[in-house]
Simulated assay, not measured.
Amino acid sequence: MTDSAPNPPSVNLLGHVTALKVAAVITATILTGLALWALRGILEPFVLAVFLLIIIDGLARLLTVRLPKALRRLALPVAIAAIVAVLVVTIWVTADNASDFAAQSASYTARINDLLGLVAQHLGLRVTPTLSSLIQTLNPAQYVGVVAGSFSHFAEATIFVLIYLGFLLASRRGFKAKAQGMFQNAERRVEAQRVFNQIRDGLQNYIWVQTVVGLIITAASAALMAAVGLSHIPFWCLIIFLTNYIPAIGAAVGVLFPAVFGLVEVQDIWRGVILLVGLEAIHFAVSHVVQPRMQGRSLNLDPIVVLLALAFWGFLWGVTGAFLSTPLAVMTMAILAEFSGTRPLAVLMSSDGKPYEDLAG
Score class of each variant (00 low, 15 high):
L203E: 09
Y206L: 10
I246F: 01
A248T: 00
R172K: 11
V289Q: 12
G202E: 02
V213A: 04
I217G: 02
R188E: 15
L279R: 00
Q295K: 13
Q184F: 03
N244M: 01
L276Y: 14
V306A: 14
Q291I: 06
A248I: 05
A220F: 12
Q184D: 06
W236Q: 01
I199D: 06
D302H: 15
G202A: 00
A285G: 12
Q267T: 06
V306T: 15
L308N: 06
V289W: 11
K178T: 07
Q180R: 15
R293H: 09
G166K: 02
A192S: 12
I217L: 00
N300M: 01
R173M: 13
Y245Q: 03
I304Q: 14
H283R: 02
K178M: 11
H232Q: 12
V228L: 02
M294K: 02
L238E: 07
E187G: 07
D302L: 10
R271V: 12
S287G: 14
H283T: 03
M182S: 11
V213P: 00
N197G: 08
Y164A: 11
Q193A: 15
A226R: 10
G254N: 02
L307K: 08
L307V: 13
A252T: 11
Q184E: 10
F183G: 10
Q295V: 13
I274E: 05
V266Y: 06
G202W: 01
S221V: 01
L165M: 07
K178F: 12
V290N: 03
D268S: 05
D302I: 00
R194S: 15
I282Q: 09
S231R: 13
V277P: 08
D201E: 11
R200E: 15
L203V: 09
F257H: 02
V306N: 12
V286P: 03
I249L: 15
L168D: 03
L168K: 01
T211I: 03
Y245P: 03
I269N: 11
G254C: 02
N205H: 13
R297G: 04
T218D: 00
N244W: 09
A170F: 10
H232K: 11
K178G: 09
Q193G: 15
L215F: 15
Y206G: 09
W208P: 00
L256Y: 08
Q193V: 10
S298Q: 13
G214Y: 05
R297K: 08
A192M: 13
N197P: 00
A177Q: 14
G214F: 03
L165E: 11
E191G: 03
W236D: 02
A259P: 04
Y245M: 05
Q180T: 12
F235R: 00
W270Y: 12
Y245L: 05
Q295H: 11
H283P: 00
V253G: 12
L279A: 01
P292S: 03
K176N: 12
A170E: 05
N197E: 11
A222Y: 09
A281Y: 06
L301H: 05
